[in-house]
Design a protein around this nucleic acid. Structure first.
Length: 482
RNA sequence: GCUCGCGUAGUGUAGCGGCCCAUCAUGAAGCCCUCUCGAGGCUUCGACCCGGGUUCAAAUCCCGGCGCGAGCACCA
């Protein structure tokens, strides 16, 4: 039997120098679940090779995916939470000089031209493997047009800079791809105050990313296979500059059963319109939301490492992620009782003590035990359990308390010690009315119930016995998962 | 339409010429343990997309088919 490989495959092409990887989100919103893959895979390799992780903000679109000023710091914090690493920060919008410098250099090498075709016109030309007239402008003309793009004589939509590849390339995506376009930053200023309306001519992803990867000595690019053609475009650019392209690795598409299609832009609009309360709304597939619900960074890490780097498109249920999380949180969550649809029962008979002490965890004694006052002799149990009592057996074991027999709303104690063989149910004495919130089909459900009195601070993750894990918040409980 | 990529149990994943009547996890079923329907332990179930070829030998290499996905934006 061959040995089973565990964890991530070895990183290929690890040379003498330091390994440099990057994670490059658009700060038009906070990180979503999907981002965590790129972050974890790249950071794990960086850690394994004692290399560098670059967090690069690709904030070069001020119109369609305008950056969110507050996202920069928050993403940085999310990255540290998720990876445990302090990444090197690069902000594309603050590095425009470099991109412009390389643009001019490329024009001077006759490796690019300013194209005045409309998008539709060029689409047709590309499809037919033709060349547009602008392709044959001489270098001086191109440099002049570049100036016109920069100084405002050419308006957004009038011109783009295209990298001269080959219009007969079999892959249509690679034919003279666009590298720079004009954005009206007077009416749509960049939200970073030091950038604002300073630039009109902005690089597109393929150019900006390619140049920056070279400038940062990125050694490995690991990303989704939807960016394969992007690599091929960038390779053509690297050839012109005589640079060596990093090693690239791709992963396939992942779909989570429970998550529909969503985009950061859409989430942002929905938050702004009030559909969602914020980035940590429990319905959202964001890192902020998952964190709020108690998800562990380690679970996310284990989950993505398990999926690995295959290029096949996969679809996984959320329960697969939760099973990793359960393993991590089970030992560190104190147990507490929460009764949904409570029905009260009066305890009758038996030698009932005034209070009992119950452990907060079945195996670990590092939690303070719970002391439960029984002086009122009234307890609450779940309606579903009572219903079962009516239909099947009316005998139960109240967990950690007593064997009982239910008749007419009374719980007659038959034994304090467990006689065994009885169904064990949970209960609450002296609880507080509390709401348990959980998301289901893009809606928030609220389950009312009685939560056992406790002294856990806000933010504590607990296990609601027989129900699942939840986080205690100011306004109630938020279900993690069961 | 053109281009690229991918197809191993229900879901993920390992293996990438002989060690494979195929790994591990998850899931389902059952049992054990436990004063939770949680955790833990054990058992069982279940897969190499199809068809050719190469080879003494193919999940693994080649070709064809089929299926799935992505790119062809003045988004990232």
């Amino acid at each position: 039997m061959k040995e089973r490989r565990v964890g991530l495959p070895d990183l290929p092409d690890v040379g003498e120098g330091t390994v440099v990887l990057r994670f490059a989100p658009n700060p038009n919103g906070l990180l979503s679940f999907g981002h965590s893959r790129g972050l974890i895979i790249n950071s794990e390799y960086a850690k394994a090779h004692n290399g560098t992780l670059i967090l690069r903000f690709d904030d070069t679109d001020t119109i369609q995916k305008a950056p969110l000023l507050s996202a920069y710091e928050k993403i940085e914090e999310e990255v540290e939470w998720l990876t445990g690493l302090k990444p090197k920060i690069i902000i594309a919008s603050e590095r425009m000089e470099y991109y412009h410098k390389h643009a001019v250099q490329l024009l001077e090498m006759d490796g690019a031209y300013i194209c005045l075709c409309s998008g539709d016109e060029f689409k047709e030309i590309r499809k037919n493997k033709q060349e547009c007239s602008h392709r044959h402008q001489d270098i001086e003309e191109n440099l002049d047009l570049w100036m016109q793009m920069k100084d405002g004589r050419l308006k957004p939509g009038d011109a783009v800079m295209r990298v001269k590849t080959d219009m007969t390339l079999p892959n249509p995506a690679l034919r003279d791809w666009p590298a720079f376009r004009i954005q009206d930053t007077k009416t749509n200023p960049h939200p970073r105050p030091n950038i604002g309306s300073r630039w009109r001519v902005w690089p597109l992803l393929d150019f900006q990313s390619a140049v920056e990867d070279h400038l940062q000595n990125v050694t490995h690019i690991i990303r989704g296979k939807d960016l394969m053609d992007s690599t091929r475009k960038q390779l053509l650019l690297y050839d012109k500059f005589g640079w060596e392209y990093p090693t690239t690795i791709y992963w396939g598409r992942v779909k989570i059963h429970e998550y529909g299609g969503f985009s950061t832009s859409q989430i942002r609009r929905d938050i702004e319109s009030g559909k969602y309360s914020n980035w940590d709304d429990i319905r959202l597939p964001t890192i902020a939301s998952m964190r709020r619900k108690g998800m562990n960074a380690e679970a996310l890490k284990a989950f993505w490492i398990e999926l690995g780097l295959t290029q096949k498109d996969i679809s996984v249920p959320l329960s697969s992620l939760f099973s990793h999380d359960t393993k991590i949180i089970d030992i560190k969550t104190p147990r507490i009782s929460f009764v949904r649809e409570p029905k009260s029962l009066e305890l009758v008979g038996g030698e009932l003590p005034a209070s009992i002490t119950v452990p907060s965890h079945p195996e670990h004694s590092n939690f303070k035990p719970r002391i439960i006052d029984l002086s009122t002799k009234i307890i609450m149990v779940e309606k579903a359990d009572i219903d079962e009592a009516l239909s099947k057996s009316n005998k139960f074991r109240l967990k950690d308390l007593a064997d009982i027999e239910i008749t007419d709303g009374k719980a007659i104690i038959t034994s304090i010690d467990s006689a065994g063989g009885l169904r064990i149910i949970h209960w609450v004495a002296n609880g507080k009315e509390t709401n348990l919130y959980y998301n289901e089909d893009d809606g928030i459900n609220c389950q009312k119930g009685i939560l056992e009195n406790h002294s856990h601070p806000i933010g504590t993750q607990v296990q609601l016995e027989r129900i699942g894990y939840a986080v205690i918040e100011e306004t109630g409980l938020v279900l993690s998962h069961n």
